[in-house]
């Protein structure tokens, strides 16, 4: 699966760089990616439904379901502070960049507006790299640590782009936690960027 994902990613980048994104099959795929995601989520829902007892398990988590998004936000902000100290970037910019939690499109634009083009570009690229890193770290974390920790590097992307890897390498229960975490983190990103940029 990792190899197939890598081939699909590199193939897509190559198509984009070669200007093939205007050709009919590629354009069809890209313009309908939301529908593909919806189809995937529907199929995931079927898988969850076939796996008896998952919903009951999720209900049992109660307030503990928030520990993963809380840990991700705390870890990312701490990482932003350390990155800022290492690169010499002001603390407000460095924490705002780390607050993107992998949501590169939003954080790139938002931080670009707040702190200028250079910080916006770093936000875009670092959050994009985080998403790609998540893709390929999920199988390793699932094997070496545990399933719920796979959600940590994915951050806000755990409800969409990195979800397929979660489906492939963890279990139905972790997939539901992953979607929940993605919703919480995605809702938190705009607030966190603004909060960090103005507070520090």
């Amino acid at each position: 699966m990792v190899y197939l994902a890598l081939i699909a990613l590199i193939g897509g980048i190559a198509c984009g760089m070669a200007g093939l994104d205007d050709t009919l099959p590629v354009e069809m795929i890209v313009s309908h990616k939301d529908l593909i995601l919806y189809a995937l989520m529907f199929l995931v829902g079927i898988s969850i439904g076939l796996n008896r007892g998952i919903i009951k398990k999720i209900k049992e988590y109660h307030i503990r379901i928030f520990v993963i998004p809380a840990g991700i936000i705390a870890g990312s902000l701490a990482g932003g502070i350390v990155s800022g100290l290492l690169t010499g970037l002001p603390l407000n910019e460095s924490t705002a960049i780390a607050s993107g939690l992998g949501w590169y499109s939003l954080s790139g634009v938002a931080i670009g507006n707040l702190a200028g083009a250079q910080a916006g570009s770093i936000a875009f690229l670092s959050n994009l790299l985080r998403e790609i890193f998540s893709f390929f770290s999920i199988p390793l974390i699932a094997e070496k640590l545990n399933y719920p920790t796979c959600i940590a590097p994915a951050g806000a992307t755990s409800e969409d782009t990195t979800l397929p890897m979660m489906i492939r390498y963890t279990d139905g229960e972790t997939v539901v936690l992953s979607v929940f975490n993605g919703v919480i983190c995605s809702a938190a990103v705009p607030f966190l960027i603004s909060f960090c940029y103005n507070l520090f």
Binding site: A8, L9, G11, G12, C15, I29, I36, L43, L128, M165
Partner: peptide
């Protein structure tokens, strides 16, 4: 699910490239 996954990853690559 696998087919949808690969199509999504491919489209992400196209957007980036």
């Amino acid at each position: 699910q696998l087919i949808c996954t690969l199509l999504l990853i491919f489209s992400m690559g196209v957007i980036l490239g």
